[in-house]
Amino acid sequence: MSKHFEDARYYLGRAAEHAKAGVKEELEPLQERVSKLVGDEPEEEPEPSRLEKLQADLKELEERAEGEAREAVESARERVEAYRTRGEKSAE
């Protein structure tokens, strides 16, 4: 497919997403009024429990530790590579 068609398809998709978001935003107040009149108000979501908060915190810590571990491994690999490169140069 031509790059121009791919670009056009992408931008049409984005335009559709923006149009959908705009319509939803415009109709929200009307939907709330109708829900109040009909008596079909959505229930508020309960606050997360203590366990759910702890699980979310642990997940965040796990992701951060994983990222730090990856950085440490990458740094170690770079240092080993630099050490090996220096050893090869001095052997010549």
Results as ranks from 00 to 15, higher is better:
42 P>S: 07
43 E>D: 14
29 P>G: 06
77 R>N: 05
61 L>K: 10
70 R>I: 09
8 A>I: 05
25 E>S: 15
47 E>I: 04
24 K>P: 01
11 Y>P: 00
29 P>Y: 01
35 S>H: 03
4 H>D: 12
26 E>I: 12
37 L>H: 04
79 R>D: 02
46 P>M: 06
54 L>R: 10
82 A>C: 03
39 G>M: 03
4 H>K: 13
84 R>P: 00
32 E>C: 01
3 K>G: 08
77 R>V: 05
51 L>D: 08
48 P>M: 11
38 V>E: 13
35 S>P: 01
53 K>N: 11
78 E>T: 11
82 A>K: 14
9 R>F: 07
81 E>P: 01
42 P>K: 12
46 P>C: 09
10 Y>V: 09
57 D>E: 15
62 E>P: 01
35 S>Q: 08
45 E>Q: 06
92 E>A: 10
48 P>W: 08
2 S>M: 06
36 K>Y: 00
76 A>Y: 04
77 R>K: 15
7 D>N: 09
78 E>D: 14
32 E>M: 08
20 K>M: 06
37 L>R: 09
55 Q>W: 02
19 A>H: 07
10 Y>F: 14
88 E>C: 04
23 V>S: 08
54 L>D: 06
20 K>H: 05
87 G>L: 15
79 R>V: 10
69 A>K: 08
45 E>C: 00
37 L>W: 04
35 S>L: 03
72 A>Y: 05
56 A>H: 12
38 V>N: 04
35 S>D: 12
65 A>S: 07
55 Q>A: 14
40 D>V: 05
90 S>K: 12
67 G>A: 09
80 V>A: 08
76 A>L: 09
27 L>R: 12
3 K>D: 14
17 E>C: 02
58 L>N: 12
45 E>N: 00
9 R>K: 10
17 E>F: 03
50 R>P: 01
86 R>V: 05
55 Q>L: 14
10 Y>E: 13
47 E>K: 13
7 D>F: 10
90 S>M: 12
7 D>W: 09
47 E>T: 03
55 Q>D: 07
1 M>G: 15
